[in-house]
Simulated assay, not measured.
Amino acid sequence: MGPALLFAPADRPERFAKAAERSDAVIIDLEDAVAPEAKAAARANMAACTLDPATTMVRINALDTADAALDLAALARSPFRTIMVAKAFDLGAIVRLSEYAVVVLCETAAGIIAAEELAKLPNVVGLMWGAEDLVASLGGTSSRFTTGARAGQYRAVALQARSQLLLAAGAAGKVAIDSIYADFADLDGLAEESEDAVASGFGAKACIHPSQVAVVRDAYRPSEASVAAAQELLAAADAAGTGVFAFKGQMVDGPILLHARQTLRRATP
């Protein structure tokens, strides 16, 4: 799946095809985006959806809720076999979903603490974190500063959780998905956060509005100058034929070359 993942509420089936056209992958949402009284219809919409299963996943409710059992029953009637599990933390419950490729959404204190072990499970293909549910699970009120010079920036606990999940995913060789940027009108803030996600190693970022997709894609797409610089560096490495060499006044070794290869990988459609 590409870098821009777009949530689509399952109670709004008219949005499914548009979401698929505008994003790299769609997350059909049976959880927070759907009111309790609309969940039954949302499940029916999901089961009848004809989007490509290769670029579609379904977010189900937390596995310790009654809604999750109903979600899974509806999924069994659908073509979709990649799911995102909300508020994941229970290893045994995730293991039992062996017929699915699972993205664990670690958005509680228990989920972040369990991320390292969740990432090791064979049916887990990715990990995502969620800021607001995490802070709520701690009894807090906001994941970001709301006033002053740091307004809009994550608080320390959210940054730690974000880093902890990224490290857990990386250590297990699984993709890490960065959390949503809730202020969908603030595209500049989204661009800054997306650029940090790319530089830090997140493989994708979730979006809640179609206008965010282009911003995320731009962040993940290297500039022509970056691609040219990476190609020049790798050519110089081939010519040097040594493990460490000097290039334009700097010493270059394995990690620097890996960064260059990753730049070229992101430049390939």
Rank of each mutant, 00 (worst) to 15 (best):
Gly2Trp: 00
Ala4Met: 02
Ala4Gly: 01
Ala4Asp: 01
Leu5Val: 13
Ala8Met: 11
Pro9Val: 15
Pro9Asp: 13
Phe16Tyr: 11
Lys18Tyr: 14
Ala19Met: 12
Glu21Met: 06
Glu21Ala: 10
Ser23Asp: 12
Val26His: 02
Val26Phe: 06
Ile27Pro: 00
Glu31Gln: 15
Val34Glu: 02
Ala35Arg: 08
Ala35Met: 09
Pro36Lys: 04
Glu37Phe: 09
Lys39Gln: 06
Lys39His: 07
Lys39Met: 06
Lys39Tyr: 08
Ala42Leu: 13
Ala44Pro: 03
Asn45Ser: 14
Cys49Asn: 03
Thr50Ala: 12
Pro53Asn: 07
Arg59Met: 11
Arg59Phe: 05
Leu63Cys: 08
Leu63Pro: 02
Leu63Ala: 05
Asp64Trp: 09
Asp67Lys: 02
Leu72Arg: 07
Leu75Tyr: 05
Pro79Arg: 06
Thr82Leu: 15
Met84Cys: 07
Val85Pro: 00
Ala88His: 09
Ala88Asn: 08
Leu91Thr: 05
Gly92Met: 05
Gly92Thr: 10
Tyr100Cys: 04
Val102Thr: 02
Val103Thr: 14
Leu105Pro: 00
Cys106Gln: 04
Glu107Asp: 05
Ala109Pro: 04
Ala109Cys: 08
Ala110Ile: 07
Ala110Ser: 10
Ile112Asn: 02
Ala119Glu: 06
Lys120Val: 15
Asn123Pro: 07
Val124Thr: 00
Val124Gly: 00
Val125Arg: 01
Val125Leu: 03
Met128Glu: 14
Trp129Tyr: 05
Glu132Asn: 13
Asp133Arg: 07
Val135Ile: 15
Ser137Asn: 11
Gly140Cys: 08
Thr141Gln: 05
Phe145Thr: 12
Thr147Lys: 03
Arg155Met: 11
Ala158His: 00
Leu159Val: 15
Gln160His: 14
Ala161Phe: 09
Ala161Asp: 10
Ser163Asp: 15
Leu165Arg: 01
Leu167Phe: 14
Ala168Cys: 03
Ala169Glu: 00
Gly170Met: 02
Gly170His: 01
Ala171Thr: 15
Lys174Gln: 04
Asp178Val: 02
Ser179Asn: 05
Ala182Asn: 13
Phe184Ile: 13
Asp188Ala: 12
Gly189Phe: 01
Leu190Glu: 05
Leu190Phe: 10
Glu192Asp: 14
Glu195Ala: 12
Ala197Gly: 08
Ala199Asn: 13
Ala199Ser: 11
Phe202Ala: 00
Phe202Lys: 00
Lys205Val: 08
His209Asp: 09
Pro210Asp: 13
Pro210Thr: 10
Ser211Ala: 10
Gln212Phe: 01
Ala219Arg: 00
Ala219Ile: 04
Arg221Ile: 10
Ala225Asn: 04
Val227Gln: 03
Ala235Val: 12
Ala235His: 11
Ala236Phe: 04
Ala237Trp: 05
Ala239Lys: 13
Gly241Met: 05
Gly243Arg: 03
Phe245Arg: 06
Ala246Cys: 11
Phe247Trp: 15
Lys248Val: 13
Lys248Asn: 10
Gly249Ile: 12
Gln250Thr: 15
Ile256Met: 07
Leu257Ala: 07
Leu257Trp: 06
Leu258Trp: 10
Leu258Tyr: 08
His259Glu: 14
Gln262Lys: 11
Gln262Leu: 11
Thr263Ser: 03
Thr268Gly: 02
Pro269Cys: 08
